[in-house]
């Protein structure tokens, strides 16, 4: 009797896990494995065949000055965008958590950018930040704040901050969503208790809000950190890594190896590098914070 029960349970597990497992196997794990294995081959994009070269691609990659420079820019970009998104999320999360007229329209507007195609966002920002025809420059010029148009995406110093702000504008809403959701599930009695002990708005924030947001902020930092380190499309649509190499992050650099030099093998070695970096990052992260911990059910 017990055995049939167990068997039935086993069947349930297999049947429930199988669709996800098989889908991920076919469309994610196997292709990724294949792509990673290319790192050990001399594989030109112009040839169907390939040749085993062992670690030659990795050695080549590690010897490139451009690789390390791109790595540095990736770190700057990731820290910048994740920081911006957390700040953006906290800012709107806290402001929109309170009762205020038109709150649901404002919430929707804040969340909207996350659901807009990246190419739309890239092109909209290219248009409004254009040095010649951009409305932002026009407003800055006419208000007397600047006397020459700023070349936002074309200036060596301005390009990276501009890209970071654009990315933050698009993805900040993800953070807003998570933070708002978390704020609403904080037990109001906690605030009442804090107030009755004489805590002001600031102390309430530090003693009640922040500790409750801790895991959410950490989760955002982890997920967004991984995603932003891999961010390709928005940068490619806007600057293609330029001007000179001011916005050439690691994914852009690798893409160029694949499709400018047409060397899939070396590009794959670059992917392995990204993979290892992120694996290390998340390993350390899990070690310290462990966001996979199962939710405690206390209802």
């Amino acid at each position: 009797m017990a055995n049939t029960n167990q068997a039935r349970e086993g069947a349930w597990i297999s049947a429930a896990i199988a669709p996800s497992l098989i889908l991920l196997l076919i469309v994610a794990y196997l292709p990724i494995l294949y792509a990673l294995s290319l790192a050990f081959y001399d594989k030109s994009a112009f040839r169907p065949d390939m040749e085993w070269v062992g670690l030659a691609n990795a050695e080549w990659l590690l010897a490139q000055k451009d690789f390390w420079a791109a790595m540095g820019r990736s770190v700057v970009f990731t820290l910048g965008t994740v920081g911006f998104q957390l700040a953006f999320g906290l800012f709107f999360g806290l402001l929109l958590n309170q009762a205020i007229a038109g709150r649901s329209v404002m919430r929707s507007l804040v969340i909207l950018p996350y659901l807009l195609p990246t190419i739309v966002i890239g092109l909209v920002f290219r248009w409004i930040l254009n040095p010649e025809f951009g409305v932002v420059n026009q407003l800055l010029l006419s208000s007397g704040l600047i006397d020459r148009p700023i070349n936002f995406f074309g200036g060596i110093d301005a390009a990276m901050p501009s890209i970071i702000i654009t990315t933050g504008w698009q993805y900040g809403s993800f953070a807003v969503l998570l933070i708002l959701a978390r704020l609403q599930s904080i037990n109001p009695r906690l605030y009442e208790a804090a107030r009755s002990c004489g805590a002001g708005t600031w102390r309430c924030f530090v003693d009640v809000t922040l500790p409750n947001l801790r895991t959410t902020l950490l989760l955002i930092a982890l997920l967004r950190g991984i995603w932003m380190f891999n961010k390709f499309d928005l940068i490619w649509i806007i600057t293609q890594g330029g001007p000179l190499q001011a916005t050439e992050t690691l994914p852009i650099y690798i893409y160029e190896i694949a499709f400018r030099d047409f060397d899939f093998g070396r590009a794959a070695a670059g992917c392995v590098a990204i993979f290892i970096i992120l694996l290390l990052f998340s390993f350390i992260y899990f070690k310290f914070f462990n966001p996979t911990k199962e939710v405690e059910v206390n209802r």
Binding site: A7, G10, S14, A18
Partner: peptide, 17 residues
């Protein structure tokens, strides 16, 4: 029971897969 379950689930997975 636990062993049996494991075997079944793995076999089941493999077969379905």
């Amino acid at each position: 029971g636990a062993t049996g379950r494991r075997v079944i689930s793995r076999r089941g997975l493999l077969r379905t897969g």
